[in-house]
């Protein structure tokens, strides 16, 4: 039996290899197309305070986003950078999003920038887009989900605005125009 499987195995890998690039290219093509149209609609929508753009020309899978804190919240007037990484099988799995600027927030890990947001995990659906994610993140700033905190310290003092603001400003770094490069 071992011999049989051994003799079959290389052939199988070979066939799967030869098939892979073709299907991979196809998939990459549709993903690129989808990302391109998302970029177009994001550019044309002009939602205030949110924006994103590919990091480099020729690569639509790595984006950089900008989120301004919504007015009337403790984050008003602050601007945060995020990185967006789209997996090759997007939109069937959610993109990976991290805060690049330190963000003191109950659902954001202050060190890694990881975000705890349901639509970026189990509640993800293919109908969401970059724009909906950015809008969700913007509203998350003002309305944290204190039930599942990534930053327990922040969660604890969320109800004490002065103390929270002090912590927030201690970590906050304003964005310079030199960009991430």
């Amino acid at each position: 039996m071992d011999q049989v499987t051994a003799s079959i195995a290389p052939a199988r890998t070979a066939s799967s290899k030869s098939a892979a690039p073709g299907s991979g290219n196809d998939a990459a093509g549709t993903v690129t197309k989808r990302l391109g149209s998302e970029l177009m609609s994001l550019m044309m929508s002009a939602s205030p305070g949110i924006s994103a753009f590919p990091k480099n020309d020729g690569n639509l899978f790595e984006w950089i986003g900008t989120i301004e804190g919504p007015d009337g919240t403790i984050y008003a007037g602050l601007t945060f950078k995020i990185s967006i990484h789209f997996p090759p099988n997007y939109p069937y799995v959610p993109p990976k999003i991290n805060f690049e600027s330190p963000c003191f927030h109950p659902n954001v890990d202050i060190n890694s920038g990881a975000i705890c947001l349901d639509i970026l995990q189990d509640k993800w659906s293919a109908v969401y887009s970059v724009q909906t994610i950015l809008l969700s993140l913007q509203s998350l700033l003002g309305e944290p989900n204190n039930a599942s905190p990534l930053n327990p310290d922040a969660s604890k003092i969320w109800n004490q605005p002065e103390a929270f603001k002090m912590q927030l400003m201690r970590h906050y770094r304003p964005i310079s125009d030199d960009g991430p490069n």
């Binding site: 994103a52 984006w63 950089i64 986003g65 030199d178």
Partner: peptide, 9 residues
């Protein structure tokens, strides 16, 4: 506008 916002200068 989009690229200058996100990527800086």
């Amino acid at each position: 506008e989009g690229m200058l916002t996100n990527l800086g200068q």
